[in-house]
Design a protein around this nucleic acid. Structure first.
Lengths: 204, 204
DNA sequence: TAGATTGTTAATCGATTAACAATC
DNA sequence: TAGATTGTTAATCGATTAACAATC
């Protein structure tokens, strides 16, 4: 269910930008490939009420979704791993636009230290703990090779982040208080590959 | 379920590289954060049998997973959108290593045409259909702004791709025969943000 | 043999959908 | 009023887990 929230948010944002004031569960469902039942269920679970015959008020919906997604919060994030993926993350303007502020990027390879990526310089892993603490970093993004993923997760947890976005294939283990979300592009491509071969349809 | 296959594959690959010959559902479950029941259920669904007391043969498991994920197939892929994300995808060596060969990258912005990204040159959208047909492209990756996503999807489908990896926030509609997988990094970060705020744990 | 681990059935759980009375 | 759409309950569906006999 949580996975639908960013999609509602994005679509409702677009509606608001276009000056649309009301939207029905039916329309929303159609646009996002869901059933209207699911949409109503989802919203009522946050006690967000609509109005019979009109639907849901776009402005209010947007406010609610922003609140539960923390879209009004500005998060401080670090990226670990300065490969192509890490580099792309730092440069991706979408993140800042959505309140994810990348404060630093780290890599274990001394060759990379000091290299400029956007307005950041690649820092050595030894600085991680200090940066996270002093700059009050909220989340870490793991963009390192699989074999290093767990130890980087441990470092991040020890340093004090509250959440981790894991982009490696490895399953990482963390204490219960740490939120973890996995996001694996190669895995998505492999799922797609499987679906193409065996003609299953939409997954994810 | 499909979403677990790439993770099994990656882990079993690592086992094979380390010369491990047998693995139990219990060990696998522990490493991937699942229950042994799920693991056995999954494998038996592909009629892959283990041996009591020993577990599953790593080599055979690897072969099976490679088969169902199409990991032995070399796929030809195009990327649409030459922003930071598109650029990163082209440069990301993980793709080639896993059999996803990026043949071309396209962008609608004339300013970008001809620019070099790795060994590729950014092509205009007008060339998309022809390239997909002549080079027998299997899949397209959508890395364009949300507003353009659906029309790019239509172009890709018309041109004849069999699968689409959608990295935009938009829900795209395609004919039934086309496989679609969504992969949204910002959405993952927003899920994480929600989980940090309301202390839910692992999702995805 | 004793013990470990599979394969499979049945139970549980949760998420999605259908249905429909209430309401504007 | 008639019609559209919500909010919610109950039904359905599918996925996960538990349990345990079979087996090596």
């Amino acid at each position: 269910m949580v996975k639908r929230l960013p999609r509602y948010f994005s679509y409702v944002q677009a509606l608001a930008n276009n000056g649309v004031e009301w939207v029905s569960s039916i329309e929303l469902a159609k646009q996002l490939g869901l059933t209207s039942s699911t949409v109503r269920q989802d919203f009522s679970c946050f006690s967000f009420s609509g109005v019979s015959k009109r639907g849901y008020e776009v402005a209010g919906l947007l406010r609610m979704l922003a609140d539960i997604l923390g879209a009004n919060t500005v998060w401080k994030v670090v990226v670990v791993g300065a490969g192509n993926l890490g580099r792309a993350l730092v440069l991706h303007e979408d993140f800042v636009r959505n309140g994810f502020n990348i404060a630093s990027i780290f890599d274990s390879d001394p060759e990379k230290h000091g290299i400029n990526i956007g307005s950041l310089k690649v820092l050595p892993m030894q600085d991680l703990a200090e940066v996270v603490k002093i700059e009050n970093i909220d989340m870490g993004i793991i963009a390192v090779p699989d074999t290093a993923a767990q130890s980087v997760a441990d470092l991040l947890v020890d340093a004090g982040v509250k959440g981790i976005l894991n982009m490696s294939m490895t399953h990482i283990t963390t204490p219960d208080r740490i939120a973890v979300t996995d996001s694996r592009i190669v895995a998505s491509l492999q799922q797609l590959s499987h679906c193409v071969l065996f003609s299953c349809r939409r997954n994810s």
